[in-house]
Amino acid sequence: MRTLSQYVRRTPVMHVTVDGRQLVFKLEQLQLTGSFKLRGAVNKLLALNVPEAVTGVVTASGGNHGIAVAQAAHLLGAHATVFVPVTAPETKTRRIEALGAKLIRHGNTYAEAAAAARDLGLTYIEAYNDPTVIEGQSTVTREIVEDAPEVDSIVVAVGGGGLVAGAALASGGRHIVAVEPENCCAMHHALQAGEPVDSVVNSVAADALGATRAGSLALGILQQHQVSSVLVSDEELLAARDRLWEEFRLAVEPAGAVAFAAVLKGDVPGELPCVILCGANSEWLAR
């Protein structure tokens, strides 16, 4: 039986000191596709029946999930169609096509692209609101717990909620800090409202974190665990991205620096937090 570990990279952890504080970085930007999304995509495709995979799958994405589904389909011998909004960065759409997936640009937002993708009639691969996808993303935190068990809080950038929900499930009771850009914070609004609500998406990190509504499954998981919701400005997350490069030569996209921005802001509890650097696929990489 094929397993997830055959297709994804076990990314390293890195112990650092920042402003006199001990931290652990989870270097998930070194994943095969440049983001954690491959874990959930492969896990979902492995769970499909063979006819579904051969017929083809479809998804919608701002970029990273689309790359992951295209890579997963390539690895597992399936065909993928990926819908992206017209605003999706070329750095990501080129990679989707290079992996053999059919790329369709549709709509101005992820939500519009997703609606069109669902109408295609193929098996739809959720970006985050799926238990099998969340299970795949949870392996990031399982590795953290195994490789750095002394960590007492885990800091996670949040879009639709798949990664942070997986973190909550696999954390072993460790405190979870869910971090979002101020103008791209669907999960923050969902936690406040007690249910997913429509949210404005306007951030330099929107191509990776631009969900207009948080996933209902992820929200339900977070409501059952110890989670703090933190917001950072675009200026703060870009400063965090630049600092990761300048001090550690770690290249991440804006979304990949969101969790670190919360640490620099002083909004993360714990004696030894672990910061997940979740992605490195953008023209906004440190330069």
Rank of each mutant, 00 (worst) to 15 (best):
T3C: 14
S5L: 14
V8P: 06
R9K: 15
R9G: 12
T11K: 10
T17D: 15
V18P: 05
F25S: 06
Q29T: 13
L30Q: 08
L30K: 01
Q31Y: 07
L32A: 15
R39G: 02
A41K: 01
N43S: 12
N43M: 12
L48R: 06
V50R: 15
T55Q: 14
V57W: 02
V58C: 07
T59A: 04
G62E: 00
G66L: 05
A68V: 07
V69A: 10
V69L: 02
A70W: 03
A70E: 03
Q71R: 15
L75M: 14
T81V: 12
V82W: 11
V84L: 04
R95Y: 03
G100V: 10
I104A: 00
R105C: 06
A116H: 11
A127P: 12
P131H: 11
R142G: 15
R142I: 12
E143S: 09
V145A: 11
V145G: 04
V151F: 06
D152Q: 09
I154Y: 11
I154S: 07
V155R: 14
V164K: 09
A170C: 01
A170S: 07
A178D: 12
A178F: 09
E182V: 11
E182Y: 01
C184Q: 07
C185F: 08
A186I: 02
M187R: 04
A190K: 05
E195S: 14
V204R: 15
D207C: 05
L209N: 11
A214N: 01
G215Q: 01
G215C: 10
I221K: 02
L222N: 02
V227M: 09
S233N: 12
S233P: 12
L238V: 14
D242A: 15
E246H: 15
E247N: 13
E247L: 14
F248V: 05
R249N: 14
A251N: 10
E253I: 14
A255V: 02
A255N: 02
A255T: 08
A257W: 04
A261L: 06
V263A: 04
V263K: 01
D267M: 02
D267G: 08
P269I: 07
C278A: 13
A280D: 04
N281Y: 05
N281P: 07
E283I: 12
A286V: 15
A286W: 14
